[in-house]
Structures are given as structure tokens and as C-alpha cells.
């Protein structure tokens, strides 16, 4: 066991879990000692105890699948729209200079507040949620794609030129692979933006997945259940993050 913990592979994960457990224990102690107000914040032990209940009574897995499905659909669309847009901007300096600040502004805009517009356009369904999440989450993907491509080291491009590669070959075989780490930073940022918006809109319009459940549990003042449902939101985020990590690894180590 000791040798397992010492190994490079398991030590970071074990340290992470231990830190989380320690933080949870400290919160529990602060609540028990009433340094934190237990009427506003539930005991962590109650939150964990509420998990089987919300699985049984609130169909949390089904809601998890709804939110996860919306998140993955948004992820696919963010990549499918954001990366080509980033490529387009990088290849057209005029368009880039004209629109780059718009994308930065869009990233900062509280687009979630425009949800009534999306409800009118798409109806009260999952496509309205996904559309809002995608539009609000594309900017980091576009901006990091532009950054990544522009940051390709000149010497690597010269290596391609020395091998008489065409501009297209240099783009696809040198610039794109070189930009992948940056593009994936953008994708992960986009993912965070999207998940926050998805859960937020589900909460606001009382529709669909975990956001709606959180809304209902909060209205019933079921604090332990509310926080237990938030744990499932974190699980969606972890699932999507792991997926992007696998894809990045597959692309870079092929």
C-alpha cells in the first residue's frame, strides 16, 4: 500500500482525495461547533446521506443523463463551430482584427439572461438550452484556436518548408498539431462555460435535468438534497473533462 501511494501515478489522486476529505471534515466540524450556521448550510454527512434518497425518489440518474446529454451536445457543437471559426480568423487577419474583440466581449456577456429570447426562438425544450450554452461558450474555443495556431514556432514551419511541404500540408501537419494543447484549453474553458449555462437555464426555466432538480429541492428547502444534486453536476463536469482529455491524448499520441 505504501509503495502504491508513493508511486507517481497514484500519489496525486490520493492527495487530491485526502485534501477533499479533509476539507469536508473541517466543514462538518465547523457546522457541528455552530461556527457555520447549520440552518443555511447542510452537514456534509447529511448531503452524502441524501444521495441514495435523491437517486430513489428524484430520478437523479435520468436527470444526470439529460444534463450530461445537453453538455455533450454543446461540447460537440462548440468544437464543430468554434475550431473552424478560429481557423478562419487565424487565416484572415482582417476578419480577425475586425472581430476578435467581439468574441472577447461575447465571452464576458451574461448571455444566460437572454434565455427568454431562446425560449421564444426554440420553445421550452433542450434545444433552447443547448443553443444558449453553445453561443455563450464558443468564444474561448475561437480565441484559443487563433492563439494556438498563431503561436506555432517559426522554426517548425521552416522545417515544413525545407521539406517542400505545401501551405495546406504545413497547416494540417504542423500548425494544427502544434496548436492542439491550446485548442483543448479553449475547449475545456468552453465546457465550463457551457455547463454553468446549461444548469443555470434548467434552473431558471424549471426544465429538464439537474438544474431543474436543484430548483425543486431548493424550493422545498431540502438543503441536503440540493447539495447532493450539485455533486451530480460536478460528476457531469468530470465526465466531460475526462472525455476531452482522452480525445486530446488520442490526437497527440497517435
Amino acid at each position: 500500500m505504501a509503495s502504491l501511494l508513493r508511486s507517481d501515478r497514484f500519489l496525486p489522486a490520493a492527495t487530491g482525495i485526502a485534501s477533499l476529505a479533509a476539507a469536508v471534515a473541517i466543514v462538518e466540524l465547523l457546522l457541528r461547533a455552530e461556527i457555520l450556521n447549520p440552518h443555511i448550510m447542510p452537514y456534509p454527512s447529511d448531503v452524502f446521506a441524501a444521495i441514495p434518497r435523491i437517486i430513489r425518489e428524484e430520478a437523479v440518474f435520468q436527470r444526470f443523463l439529460v444534463t450530461a446529454g445537453e453538455t455533450l451536445a454543446s461540447l460537440v457543437l462548440i468544437v464543430a463551430i468554434g475550431v473552424p471559426l478560429g481557423v478562419l480568423l487565424q487565416r484572415n487577419p482582417l476578419v480577425r482584427k475586425a472581430t476578435e474583440s467581439w468574441f472577447s466581449a461575447l465571452a464576458a456577456a451574461p448571455i444566460v439572461l437572454a434565455y427568454p429570447l431562446f425560449l421564444v426562438l426554440f420553445g421550452r425544450n433542450a434545444s433552447a438550452i443547448v443553443a444558449l450554452a453553445v453561443i455563450g461558450s464558443i468564444p474561448p474555443v475561437v480565441l484559443k484556436t487563433v492563439d494556438g495556431l498563431a503561436a506555432t514556432r517559426k522554426v517548425l514551419i521552416n522545417v515544413g518548408r525545407a521539406y517542400s511541404m505545401t501551405r495546406r500540408q504545413i497547416f494540417w501537419r504542423i500548425m494544427v498539431p502544434s496548436a492542439i494543447p491550446s485548442i483543448f484549453v479553449g475547449i475545456r474553458l468552453g465546457l465550463i462555460f457551457a455547463l454553468v449555462k446549461i444548469v443555470g437555464v434548467e434552473f431558471l426555466i424549471n426544465f429538464g435535468g439537474l438544474g431543474q432538480l436543484i430548483n425543486e429541492l431548493a424550493e422545498r428547502y431540502d438543503l441536503a438534497g440540493t447539495y447532493a444534486a450539485i455533486i451530480f453536476v460536478i460528476a457531469v463536469s468530470m465526465l466531460a473533462f475526462t472525455l476531452t482529455e482522452w480525445i486530446e491524448k488520442w490526437l497527440t499520441q497517435r
Partner: peptide, 30 residues
């Protein structure tokens, strides 16, 4: 550029996303 000339650069020019053998095989792939 000309196929008779092979260039080695002053700066670090290996492709960081390819392992050693795939770096060396790159021109052969082309």
C-alpha cells in the same frame, strides 16, 4: 526549397507532439 538539401536548424526543431521515431520518419511519411 530543394529535395537535395536537408536543413538542420539552430533552434529546437523536433515536433513535440511526435515521439522520436515518428519525428525521424516524418520526411519519409511525406
Amino acid at each position: 526549397s530543394h529535395e537535395s538539401i536537408g536543413m538542420v536548424f539552430q533552434e529546437e526543431s523536433t515536433f513535440p507532439w511526435r515521439n522520436v521515431i515518428d519525428n525521424v520518419a516524418f520526411p519519409l511519411e511525406l
